[in-house]
Nucleic acid binder design. Structure first.
Lengths: 197, 197
DNA sequence: GTCTATATCGCGATAGAC
DNA sequence: GTCTATCGCGATATAGAC
């Protein structure tokens, strides 16, 4: 667990990055808003990139603890929707990461590799949920290629719906996020199994 | 039409931005690679942001001239796929824009506004194609809300499939791009009207 | 239109006192 | 752990000769 000051630097940096982006926000700026000296900031983090990496790790920790399925039963479509909704909330908290992701990863090979492995876990999770829904009879039996495509589409919505809202100038309201979930239902519903009698 | 040097600056900047991102590429760097002096660069463009704006305008011009439907007949599903495929190619040419879009727009209000209006045209186009497919009987009759959702999904694939490939570390191969098109078919095919007769 | 030279600024990062 | 002071660099952008 980080010291108070160390965490305070992260909190301040996150707020500034989300508001202005990583480019225009300097370490001096972060230190000033955090109410500490630039030297002190560099005592806790050796570089600006180090702060960014720490924020990525915070994000990963959030996804690990909050993006979980109930372990005591088979997953439902509602579970899938709830998972994506939670993901939207986490992504909103770390907006700057998703706004600049490709630029940030392109400038830091270690981070890129780390991100790839975390991301793979998330994608595999989606694929397993879709396969489990099919196995449980919630969805009609599906070919492997179809499972993959449905998982790809759910993933695409989950990862990019927020960016789409932001680019089109819409606020991240509850209703706007919920529309993303209806898109997911639009993808899935043609494959729902007929209700049991 | 821009002068030779002016265009040469744009070409050089585009190549460098695509390779390294806008942040690490300085105007000095652009001038050096272009084989001109920094002062000359500033004779043609008053700022780095001015160069970026000019590249956005080049992109818009490309979409205007290349993203068109055949005007002499009703659109087909193949037309829709071809349109998206062409869009993939254009986006690949201007990768840096899509990699940094939210950061670039967030730092330039005029550009953001301009981008919104261009983007709206694109989205409306998608909605019209889906509606036209339904009206032409290619797709079964659809409710308005369904047309919107299908257009949203096609749009999401069209705008973010490339980013998804890049983030997951995949090369922009023909096969990878084609998979994006199969995702679009996955969305559309449940609504294809039964063949006549 | 193009160059050379330069002004100005602020950034990331470090040294050393406390 | 925190501060003050500062180094060194490279960035954007301009002035003025050619």
């Amino acid at each position: 667990m980080p010291s108070q000051t160390k965490q305070h630097i992260l909190d301040t940096a996150l707020a500034l990055f989300n508001a202005q982006g990583t480019g225009p926000v300097s370490t001096n700026h972060i230190a000033e808003v955090a109410g500490i000296s630039p030297g002190n900031l560099y005592y806790h983090y050796r570089s600006k990139q180090d702060i960014i990496r720490a924020l990525f790790e915070q994000l990963y920790a959030q996804t690990d603890t909050r993006l979980v399925l109930p372990a005591d039963r088979l997953p439902t479509v509602a579970d899938l929707l709830a998972l994506v909704r939670t993901n939207f909330d986490i992504m909103a908290d770390y907006r700057f990461i998703y706004r600049e992701l490709l630029a940030l990863l392109g400038q830091d090979d270690a981070l890129h590799e780390r991100h790839l492995s975390i991301r793979q876990r998330g994608y595999d999770g989606f694929r397993e949920i879709v396969a489990a829904l099919s196995a449980a009879g919630v969805l009609s039996p599906l070919e492997d290629a179809t499972v993959t495509r449905l998982a790809d589409l759910c993933w695409l919505i989950s990862e990019f719906w927020l960016a789409n809202l932001e680019i089109s100038g819409q606020a991240l309201t509850d209703a706007a996020l919920a529309h993303g979930l209806t898109l997911m239902m639009q993808v899935i519903s043609p494959h729902l199994a007929p209700a049991d009698v």
